[in-house]
Write a protein that binds this DNA or RNA. Structure first.
Length: 347
DNA sequence: AATTCGGGGAC
DNA sequence: GTCCCAGAATT
């Protein structure tokens, strides 16, 4: 009975699938890059950055040989920057241990940094044709609805049930990779978190949630956690067409990325207090602007200053070469505000 | 078993 | 405004 459902889903996928760049050229390497970028990130946001990444680093040797800074820069704005470092390390290991060929067996893939059960199963099945199950956020939702499983999405038992189900199903599929990708595609385009489009779903007649009219209740909505507010005071220092930047801690938020000198505090600091905490002397500090930046677990108020300093040591980055710097989305905005105030128009 | 890690799409 | 996303690693 699930055979016909699997077939219907795969037929729909072959007909309706989105045109994604990593579907045009399949290889272990392109899949590895695409999967790393796509973790916890909506696919539409990945496309442009994936293309830039592949254009710059077209094969695993290019990536393995690249500077970490060059790799991180290609991740600018994407978030979860550890993924970039893991991908870089994975490429080095592929060159070292696998003669430059990304392994296509799940067990080997699983040994690469940044490759967990989902990513290993995805590459092994879609590129390698292996009969490996996968469960990402899309598949989880689709399978919960198929079985009218109203468990919490974060509950380990719910996740385990879906992995078991995915395994059962992929064992019956004619083409495991096509089936896996079709499940994800259905979740991304039809079986969406809210207001699923059951009217145009190719497998609605196999869906228990739909049969019971409970597709809007499954899975249950997650309860939002509250995010404490913190204040990041940053000063954009300029001299001779360059700005001063320093590197963030190797762990924590935006680990190892670059930024204008910043003091983080639980509360708003007065300008004098802020300047006193900085390692360099600031002349004519001016508060220019303030904006809110939200991540999933933090609410950060950025207070952007401009100022002048005499120090020469440290890293002075030319303004027209700021794109070469690994920068978070928040710090790109800080720099944009600071430079605009200074009159160094940027974009 | 919980927490951490980003940032914007979509509603 | 809210919820969520082609998850994995760390604590």
């Amino acid at each position: 009975m699930s055979r016909s459902c699997i077939a219907a889903l795969c037929t729909w996928f072959e007909r309706e699938q989105r045109d994604l760049p990593w579907r045009r050229q399949r290889s272990g390497y392109t899949a590895l890059v695409a999967e790393a970028m796509s973790q916890q990130t909506q696919v539409v946001r990945v496309i442009k950055q994936y293309e830039a990444f592949i254009a710059q680093l077209p094969d695993v040797y290019a990536l393995a040989a690249a500077d970490e800074e060059a790799v991180l820069r290609l991740w600018n704005g994407l978030g979860y920057y550890r993924r970039a470092r893991n991908l870089h390390a994975a490429a080095k290991r592929v060159v070292q241990d696998y003669h430059g060929e990304v392994p296509l067996e799940a067990e080997h893939l699983r040994g690469l940094p940044g490759v967990g059960p989902y990513t290993a199963g995805s590459i092994a099945s879609i590129v390698g044709g292996a009969r490996e199950p996968i469960v990402d956020a899309n598949v989880l939702r689709v399978l919960q609805r198929w079985d009218a499983d109203s468990g919490e999405v974060s509950d380990k038992q719910t996740i385990d049930r879906c992995w078991s189900r995915a395994k059962e199903l992929v064992l019956q599929a004619k083409q495991p990779g096509v089936f896996n990708e079709a499940l994800m595609e259905l979740g991304a385009t039809i079986c969406t978190p809210r207001s699923p489009k059951c009217k145009v779903c190719p497998v609605a007649r196999y869906c228990q949630a739909h049969k019971q009219g409970r597709q809007n209740e499954i899975p249950p909505v997650r309860k939002a956690s509250q995010t404490p507010t913190e204040y990041h005071h940053a000063v954009v220092l300029h001299r001779r067409g360059a700005v001063y930047v320093d590197q963030r801690d190797a762990s924590g938020l935006w680990a190892g990325l670059w930024q204008p000198p910043t003091i983080e505090a639980p509360r708003k600091l007065r300008p004098s207090s802020f300047c006193n905490r900085l390692p360099m002397r600031i002349e004519r500090p001016q508060l220019r602007s303030e904006f809110e930046f939200k991540t999933s677990s933090r609410r950060v108020i950025f207070r952007v200053y401009t100022g002048v300093t005499r120090i020469r040591s440290g890293r002075w980055q030319q303004i027209d070469a700021l794109d070469a710097l690994p920068l978070s989305s928040a710090h790109q905005k800080v720099l944009q505000i600071g430079l605009q105030e200074i009159g160094m128009v940027r974009r």
